[in-house]
């Protein structure tokens, strides 16, 4: 274990310095709130919704069949990475996903 620890530190440092310059993860929640939220919301062009609107399989089907294009083509508004990140976010927080548990949280 003592030999593994320095390796882990080296890996950590590598990613800490590499990631900010190389490839930072697209934040699905951020894209969902700021880009999806431009149209979806109360008193906006499209109805408000949360990831819990569908189960994870339904969200996967929604994206694989590009169901959004039936109402509006958004391919020009989102990069592929952003769409992927939003899909991951929606699936991760879908109605049937593993939710946090504690006392007094909804």
């Amino acid at each position: 274990m003592k030999k593994l620890f320095p390796c882990f530190i080296v890996a950590l440092l590598f990613f800490l310095f590499y990631l900010p310059y190389g490839a930072v993860a697209v934040d699905g929640e951020d894209v969902f709130q700021n880009k999806c939220g431009k149209c979806h919301g109360d008193l906006k062009a499209a109805p408000d919704f949360s990831p819990a609107k569908y189960a994870s399989t339904q969200w996967e089907r929604f994206f694989s069949r590009d169901k959004h294009s039936r109402k509006k083509d958004i391919s020009g508004l989102f990069s592929k990475e952003e769409l992927r990140a939003v899909q991951d976010h929606l699936v991760l927080h879908a109605a049937d996903s593993d939710h946090p548990e504690s006392i007094g949280i909804r």
Binding site: L12, F15, L19, P20, V24, A25, D27
Partner: peptide, 8 residues
């Protein structure tokens, strides 16, 4: 979690 979007 996902500290500063660095997967860490």
């Amino acid at each position: 979690k996902n500290f500063l979007n660095t997967w860490l």
